[in-house]
Amino acid sequence: MSLRYARTLAFVFLAAYAVAVTWPGMVPFNRIHPLILGLPFSMVWIAIWIVAGCLVLWMLHRVESTHRARRGLGDDGAD
């Protein structure tokens, strides 16, 4: 995956995250049932985004690390 692509994806994810956990993005998912692992769905919805955030950041880190290793630099790798 190219660096530019990975950064765009990460950025889009963060924008989606911001909308999904606030008004109005949260509204359709703001419900008690179904309980998942015993937790109300509204809480699970936020937890899902946190877990997705972990994965996205981890993938971004892999791409950025590969890119940095190739350039042999400690900088932030921007073009």
Partner: peptide, 16 residues
């Protein structure tokens, strides 16, 4: 739940 929600959003840009 707001306390749950903001952390990831706030810390991610810090990567750069």
């Amino acid at each position: 739940f707001y306390i749950l929600a903001y952390g990831v959003l706030g810390i991610a840009p810090w990567y750069w």
